[in-house]
Design a protein around this nucleic acid. Structure first.
Length: 308
DNA sequence: CCCCAGGCGGTTG
DNA sequence: CAACCGCCTGGG
């Protein structure tokens, strides 16, 4: 149970026919750019001609939205106050105490690399993304690269997902959204589409995995609602009933979709970090209940800065 | 032609 | 159980 009381100054605004939220003085810090660029999310892209330092747009929870930042101030376009409190505050992790989380991570380790990684990654928020979309996205991510992961997810959304109306959001859309913005298709829709249709979207050998996930989620033999209530190791075991879901995909799904912050995805980059900076008997548990967030700082540090 | 990309399933010793 | 191998596809 998260009992933290978020602190920021919220003001509502309107630009043409578009509602937006403005946030100032966000405690714990929040970087839109790092959050959407750190590899946890495949459905948000930069707004090309933005007047802000950074702006990322995409579709989540059935609606188009953009997040912008300018010297510490954050804007959420196509959101009113109730949307913010119902959806985006949780989605962005703004109701979490990152000052306390970061202090906890630092306290639990004598490793200087963690301090460096935190310094570089500070402002990353672990998103709370939609369960099914997150699961499917990380199934697709295996043995794959980010541009192609994004392309496959975009293909699936365009061909099978519901179209959303972006009227009024001119100037706050990513390039891909200019040709139409779409929801990620439901498990039912993917199951009905069948493996041949999923293969045709260039999913490669992952098509059978996606379809197995769609089958099990839609028939309830894997319940994402139930998984949300389980401790990480049990939840991971549930997810791994799906063909093509192993420890890494399960951990990413739990961390980026279910806000299970102790889930610790080990990919090639984290293996590199562990080999470089940690003893061979290192365990993720030694980083505590926010090990997954520490992981994301380390991943960002190593992947995008080469451990500089 | 090669290799690789945010793994996993299947097989082998 | 660890080690290894092949895998769709697209890009370098």
């Amino acid at each position: 149970m998260n009992t933290y009381k978020e602190t920021f100054k919220l003001t509502c605004g309107r630009e043409g026919s578009l509602d937006y939220i403005r946030l100032d003085d966000i405690s714990g810090g929040f970087s839109v750019k790092k959050t959407f660029d750190c590899g946890q999310c495949f459905r948000f892209d930069p707004v090309a001609d933005t007047k802000y330092e950074a702006e990322y747009a995409g579709v989540a929870f059935g609606r188009p939205v953009s997040f912008a930042e300018d010297s510490g101030t954050v804007f959420i376009f196509n959101s009113n106050e109730s949307d913010f409190y119902e959806l985006w505050m949780d989605y962005l992790g703004l109701d979490r105490d990152y000052d306390a989380i970061n202090a906890d991570i630092i306290d639990r380790s004598d490793k200087p690399v963690l301090a460096s990684a935190l310094e570089v990654g500070r402002g990353i928020r672990i998103l709370s993304q939609e369960h099914w979309e997150t699961l499917c996205s990380f199934i697709i991510s295996q043995n794959n690269n980010i541009p192609r992961i994004k392309k496959i997810i975009a293909n699936m959304s365009r061909e099978l997902g519901d179209k959303v109306d972006t009227h009024g959001m001119e100037g706050h859309l990513s390039d891909i959204m200019l040709d139409g913005a779409y929801c990620f298709p439901s498990a039912d829709t993917i199951r009905e589409a069948g493996i041949d249709a999923i293969s045709a979207l260039r999913t490669g050998f992952r098509a059978k995995y996606i379809c197995d996930a769609a089958e099990k989620v839609s028939n309830g033999s894997v319940s994402l609602d139930k998984i949300a209530e389980l401790d990480s190791p049990i939840a991971a075991a549930e997810l791994m009933k799906i063909k093509g879901v192993g420890p890494k995909v399960a951990a990413c799904t739990l961390l980026f979709g279910f806000s299970k912050y102790d889930a610790f995805p080990i990919d090639v980059w984290i293996k590199r970090v562990m080999a470089k900076y940690f003893p061979s008997d290192f365990t993720p548990e030694s980083l505590g209940s926010y090990a997954g967030i520490a992981q994301q700082y380390l991943f960002y540090y190593e992947r995008f800065l080469g451990g500089e």
